[in-house]
Write a protein that binds this DNA or RNA. Structure first.
Ligand SMILES: [Mn+2]
Ligand SMILES: [Mn+2]
Ligand SMILES: [Mn+2]
Ligand SMILES: [Mn+2]
Lengths: 224, 224
DNA sequence: ATTAAATTTTAGATAAGACTAAAATATTGT
DNA sequence: ACAATATTTTAGTCTTATCTAAAATTTAAT
């Protein structure tokens, strides 16, 4: 297989990315319906594309059994994710965009084809390890620096940590976190946890705050 | 017509840009063949696209009589050119690309859709008036700052000026200019002009240099 | 073990953008 | 003026990426 600087279409790249993200959740092969939902398209369209990706040796596909990425497919997906996240850092760090504004633009920028561009952008940004949402940026070989992190919802009373990422990164959720004064790097401590509904009273900096279970399940923290 | 933030396809945008550039040369309507050559496509494909652009009120088209841009088409072309040139400035000024490396990448970046992105990029770059090749950058309304400039080939003996742009901006020509130590801002003086073939002996900084007519016809200077 | 329901695939259609070959129109040369 | 040439358009085909409707297969329920 060696090194292949093949260029793929916008659509192919988006499918690979979707499958990559779904593969992390699904234990078995990724289901056609799951891909269709993620891509906001129809299952029949997915089947067509999956066949094509299979032809190009980017996915393993057996009828009715879902798909998995091949090594080549995974590498390709990771370079797109790398580009996405680097561009997000650019938008936030250099152009002063807010973290809830960058995803849509990065969705476009991630498809720009130029190794040299990404290599220089990476240097320009100081070779960052994480994007504005706390997600790790794969290096040029597709290696991801894994870090210890837990969902805030898994902490017990009196445990504390630093917010290092969000699971959901919709604009709505990010804007809600702003209102709560929570962002990457914010110190959080669990003051109380309600048995009934999983809601929490937490210490954010010096102030108390009340958050729902749903919120706690979408915040990653690094415990100390 | 008012303000229309309609998004056009990659192909439509490229056609508009091509027609814009050809319109500056052609006195009459832009010929189908000319567009085909510029776009590296077939005349029949051009006819198809031109009909579509005409439907969308981006060009005026009468069978067999070539096309001209409408006001809407011209504005749209200018926003794409604005994006192209701003990205070129970014690539050279911020990522330290060389001026002969940026065009291809800018051809991709110019199609990213986001007003906010371009507005912020413009500010980040210091609202530049010219791109790395000396071409003017239209403002957000499509206004271009016109400057006095002549082709070096039109200067007479003993006239001098500052290089402010290139007509051709192929990588080959730009690399040749590097070898000749000529770039934007370089002071040039005509020491001699050969009647026979239009070649020139010029002063570049403190050194003499010999250039062909073809080279002189592709260099813009501002006389002092 | 059958039947019902959900999932997935196939078959056939559509739209965008490109192509080739042939027809229509315009331009040139004598 | 009229034939020869060049340009442009039309007609029909192809590819990519979608879609709908129907068939095939798997999974879940009785
Ligand atoms: Mn994102
Ligand atoms: Mn992100
Ligand atoms: Mn350029
Ligand atoms: Mn330029």
């Amino acid at each position: 297989m060696y090194f292949c600087f093949m260029k793929y279409s916008l659509s192919e790249e988006n499918y690979l990315k979707a499958i990559y993200h779904l593969e992390k959740i699904a234990a078995t092969g990724v289901a056609t319906n799951a891909i269709a939902e993620q891509m906001e398209t129809k299952p029949s369209s997915v089947t067509d594309m999956v066949k094509k990706l299979s032809e190009k040796d980017l996915v393993n596909y057996i009828k009715y059994q879902g798909v998995t990425l091949t090594e080549k497919g995974r590498k390709t997906a990771l370079t797109i994710i790398r580009k996405h996240r680097l561009w997000e850092v650019f938008l936030v760090d250099k152009l002063n965009f807010h973290w809830d504004q960058v995803h849509e633009i990065a969705e476009q920028l991630e498809h720009i084809h130029s190794e040299e561009l990404i290599s220089r952008l990476d240097k320009f940004l100081g070779e960052p390890d994480f994007d504005p949402h706390g997600d790790p940026i794969p290096d040029k070989h597709g290696n991801i620096k894994r870090t210890e992190k837990k969902l805030l919802s898994d902490l017990d009373k009196n445990q504390g940590g630093v917010c290092v990422g969000v699971k959901e990164s919709s604009a709505e959720f990010l804007q809600y976190l702003d209102k709560k004064k929570i962002t990457i790097g914010t110190k959080i401590k669990v003051l109380g946890k309600e048995f009934f509904d999983g809601s929490m009273v937490i210490l954010v900096g010096k102030d108390q705050s009340f958050i729902s279970k749903k919120t706690a399940e979408n915040l990653y923290v690094q415990t100390n």
